[in-house]
C-alpha cells in the first residue's frame, strides 16, 4: 500500500505537471471535436487533389413521389485551380429544348462562386446571381451548393463519432456552411470511410434544422490508380418524397484541359 501511495505521489508531483507543461507548450494536444472534424475534411480533400482535370458523362433521373421519371443527359468538365476552388463546365444534351445550354462555375474557397449560363437560342451568356446556392439545379433535388465543388473552406466542421455505416468504419462529421446567409442548410452530417476517406452519405438539415434530404454514394471505383469516384449518387427529399439519381460514366482524368477551356468562348462553343 505505502508503495502505491508513493507511486501515486510521484505521479502527482512529477508526471502530471510535466504533461501539463507539454500541453501548454502545444507539444501534446488533445484534439477538440472541431479540430478532428477539420483534420478529416482536409485529409479527404488532400487524397482527392492532384487529378488536374477530368471529364465525365452524367445521367440525371428525376422522380416525383408517384415514381414518374424525367431524364437529363449532361457532360461535365472540371479543372483544378491552384490556391482556389475548381473550375467546372456542365453541358446539357437533353431534354432537347435545352441542348447546348452550358453552365460555367468558378468555385472559390472564400466568398461567392462566379457562375454563368449560356443560352444557345439567343447565343447569350448570362451571369447568374452567385448567392443562388440553395436554388434547384435543373429542377432536380440537388441545389447548386450540392453540385458545386466541395471546398474545405466552405464549411466549418465538428467530429461527432465513429460509427459502422453499411459495414464500413466511418467518421461521422457535422459541417456548417460558412455562408449561413445564402445556404439552404443549417448543417450537414457526413459519413466518411476511414479507409479511403470517401464520402458515403450526407444528411442535409434545412434552416429550421429539419431533416430535408439524404444523399448516398455508391459504386466507387478507382481511376488512374488514384482517384475514387462514385458511379451513382442518390438524393432523396424527405419533405416532398421526390428523388434525383445521378449516374456517372466515362470518367477521364488528366486529359489536358486548361483555363482556356473554361472561359466564355468555350462556354459558347460547348456542344
Amino acid at each position: 500500500m505505502p508503495k502505491n501511495i508513493l507511486l501515486h505521489n510521484a505521479l502527482r508531483l512529477t508526471v502530471i505537471p510535466l504533461l501539463f507543461i507539454l500541453f501548454q507548450a502545444g507539444i501534446i494536444r488533445a484534439e477538440s471535436a472541431e479540430e478532428k472534424g477539420l483534420a478529416i475534411a482536409i485529409e479527404a480533400d488532400r487524397r482527392d487533389s492532384g487529378y488536374e482535370d477530368s471529364t465525365a458523362a452524367m445521367l440525371m433521373i428525376l422522380r416525383n413521389r408517384h415514381g414518374q421519371e424525367s431524364r437529363r443527359e449532361l457532360r461535365y468538365r472540371t479543372l483544378e485551380v491552384k490556391n482556389d476552388g475548381d473550375m467546372s463546365l456542365t453541358i446539357f444534351d437533353s431534354p432537347k429544348d435545352v441542348k447546348g445550354t452550358a453552365f460555367l462555375n468558378y468555385t472559390h474557397k472564400i466568398g461567392d462562386d462566379d457562375q454563368w449560363l449560356y443560352l444557345p437560342a439567343l447565343k447569350s451568356v448570362k451571369r447568374i446571381s452567385s448567392s443562388n446556392k440553395s436554388g434547384s439545379f435543373m429542377g432536380s433535388e440537388f441545389a447548386y451548393e450540392d453540385i458545386a465543388s466541395q471546398e474545405v473552406e466552405k464549411y466549418t466542421y465538428k467530429w461527432l463519432r465513429d460509427e459502422i455505416f453499411d459495414n464500413r468504419e466511418c467518421f461521422v462529421l457535422e459541417r456548417y456552411p460558412v455562408d449561413m446567409k445564402n445556404s439552404g442548410y443549417s448543417r450537414q452530417v457526413v459519413w466518411i470511410g476511414k479507409d479511403e476517406f470517401r464520402i458515403w452519405q450526407v444528411e442535409y438539415y434545412d434552416r429550421k434544422n429539419t431533416h430535408l434530404k439524404t444523399l448516398t454514394f455508391s459504386g466507387y471505383r478507382k481511376h488512374n490508380d488514384s482517384f475514387w469516384r462514385p458511379d451513382r449518387m442518390f438524393m432523396i427529399n424527405h419533405q416532398t418524397g421526390k428523388n434525383t439519381e445521378l449516374q456517372f460514366s466515362d470518367y477521364r482524368f488528366k486529359v489536358g484541359l486548361s483555363p482556356d477551356d473554361f472561359n466564355k468562348n468555350s462556354l459558347k462553343r460547348a456542344k
Partner: peptide, 9 residues
Amino acid sequence: LQLVTGNWL
C-alpha cells in the same frame, strides 16, 4: 457592364 453582389445583378 454587369455587376453581381449577392442576389443583385
